[in-house]
Design a protein around this nucleic acid. Structure first.
Lengths: 337, 337
DNA sequence: GATAAAATTGCATAGCTATGCAATCAAAGG
DNA sequence: CCTTTGATTGCATAGCTATGCAATTTTATC
């Protein structure tokens, strides 16, 4: 007596029990359908008795729309992306959309993941990854599948990107350090393929003005360890900064720990330090990190707005690229808060 | 010219182009099907030219199995659960299963979430939440849908639970503190509904032996802030421990910060402190936390093994409750490492 | 070269719901 | 009581693939 030997209850079963037609059952479960209140109630009762649950699969076949969105995530080790995912799932649910989650790591190319998803006739793709492959983008475009990215650079008729204003935040960071009297600034960048990080660095350099000539640039890979290592190396080389801007909060935490342990430097007394993302750990007392809040809620809201538009019947290709202002959250590491 | 005006390419289209029957196309995309290599190649070429992608939806209708597993998560603010999710998604993918993700918070009850999922004919449910509602459990059981929980207490013919050996770890924690000469131990518990936390506390108390009489118990809600607040309150009341076991790492980090900031107490010099979960942040230098590693890989592996068995054709109800040993990871907060 | 065996291919169908259309029924107006 | 209008219901079908079965072709064996 295995799981699959039990034929699930169908609308026909319910119809038989309620003494109505199958279409009446279908209508009883549809909001806008025309059906007499009494009939509906009778059907719902019969359905409850039998444990009937409307099957969405046939409707998907007819409409070609599954109500599912493929969400592709990469490094969930960064709490910022976790938070974004959390909000995204909730927001999509509010639009009646389900989330088909794919986790992409080195072993699995994005292409293969999407191949899988396309078999399920997903309505759209949302991703925090930079979709590197133009081929993938083109393929999705050909299938008329809207793609929404976070902080990417990709463009195309069916591709949208929501970003925080990385460059502007970089400028603000530079101004803040200047205000605090910083004269030996350091920029701790993320990996080159991270477009957002590059923009933050550009803004920072631009905002420094004359000071930019003395700027020391370090590179990490967006992890805590890489921040710790980059700063350790810098201290070993004898560089002792009095201000730092880190491309994300995890690296910033690593930087703070390295400054203290390897250089005896404290924030903000010796180094005015800023991060980016406003992850929960940045607020932990050991770090008390001043940072930029990307406004996950607003990013997600924008993404869902675009999605709703793109999924409207009869809509053409939708391609938008809203930019959300990142807000400075001042805490101890900059001497504020 | 909207997205839905473009009829997707079907197997019939491919068949026409390749000059074969529709069934041949179906077989070309099936691994075990009998088809001549030449024919398959011809079909695959035609499929590539047309951009055909096999549609899984009709197969779901026929088989009643969607190849999708509903994964229900709660607080992703705990990196441990994020890590578990990450591994789970990968492991399920290796079994050819897709993940339909649901995030449950106050606004959304588990019942309503599952209601949604059942319309998609999910094959199973995996959750890190304690499914409180026996009604839900019964409903899923009636539908012959396997449910796999992490660290729960729920039982039933179709319900399995994988846990780490919380009680044993508690005992180990107590022994370690005793070894280190602790005489004023403190237990920082999670919320009462957290079965795992209760088991850890029981084990800890049992392992303390005679010392248990002097045990001070605090309660948090598994967040950093609650750990910080609980310990702050304790210090205010004049309690100054020399050893602590915290029900999870986030609370442990909060505890460390409170001990230092509010009591001037350092780990391990003044307080030998242990956590549970081995989250990445525990390894950050500011905390250097000794903790128990639940072995996410092994937990997930066990879960997927059960799942595979439960989804085997003709299998009856599967209910297993494996317990995985948690391994002590010694770092600085206990004076080890 | 003939027969047996195996491999390949095509035909026809099941699977379950939503929906257009026609039919039926009830209510309202004269 | 009859007609008109609107509400409700049933009928029939589309949607696309996987698969059992039969037909056909190829290969193997003697």
């Amino acid at each position: 007596m295995g799981a699959r030997d039990v034929r699930p209850v169908t609308s026909v079963d319910v119809a038989k029990r309620a003494g109505v037609s199958q279409s009446a059952v279908s209508r009883a479960f549809s909001r806008m359908a025309s059906i007499a209140p009494g009939t509906r109630e009778k059907i719902l009762r019969a359905a409850a008795e039998l444990g009937y649950r409307p099957n969405r699969i046939p409707a998907i076949m007819l409409s070609g729309r599954s109500g599912m969105v493929g969400v592709v995530v990469g490094g969930l080790s960064n709490p910022f992306y976790v938070s974004a995912l959390e909000h995204l799932v909730g927001a999509l649910r509010d639009q009646g959309l389900q989330v088909l989650l794919v986790h992409v790591d080195d072993a699995l190319t994005l292409d293969s993941a999407l191949d899988q998803l396309l078999g399920y006739r997903i309505d759209a793709v949302v991703t925090a990854l930079a979709i590197g492959s133009a081929a993938v983008a083109r393929a999705l475009g050909a299938l008329r599948i809207p793609v929404i990215c976070f902080n990417s650079r990709l463009t195309g008729p069916w591709i949208s990107t929501v970003s925080s204003d990385n460059r502007a935040a970089g400028v603000v960071a530079a101004r803040l350090l200047a205000e605090r009297g910083v004269v030996r600034p350091v920029w701790l960048a993320g990996p080159l393929r991270n477009v957002a990080s590059v923009a933050r660095g550009d803004g920072f350099r631009a905002g420094l003005g004359a000071l930019a000539g003395d700027l020391v640039s370090l590179r990490g890979d967006d992890t805590y360890e890489s921040g710790y290592d980059a700063v350790s190396g810098m201290l070993t080389r004898g560089v002792r900064p009095d201000g730092m801007f880190c491309s994300n909060d995890m690296m910033a935490c690593g930087a703070i720990d390295a400054l203290r342990e390897r250089g005896g430097l404290l924030c903000p007394e010796d180094v005015v330090l800023l991060g980016y993302d406003n992850i929960p750990q940045g607020a932990w007392r050991a770090y008390d990190l001043t940072t930029f809040d990307q406004g996950v809620e607003r990013l997600v809201e924008a993404a869902c707005g675009i999605l709703a538009e793109a999924l409207t019947d009869g809509a053409g290709p939708v391609s938008q690229n809203p930019v959300i202002e990142a807000l400075l959250v001042e805490r101890g590491s900059s001497g504020g808060g």
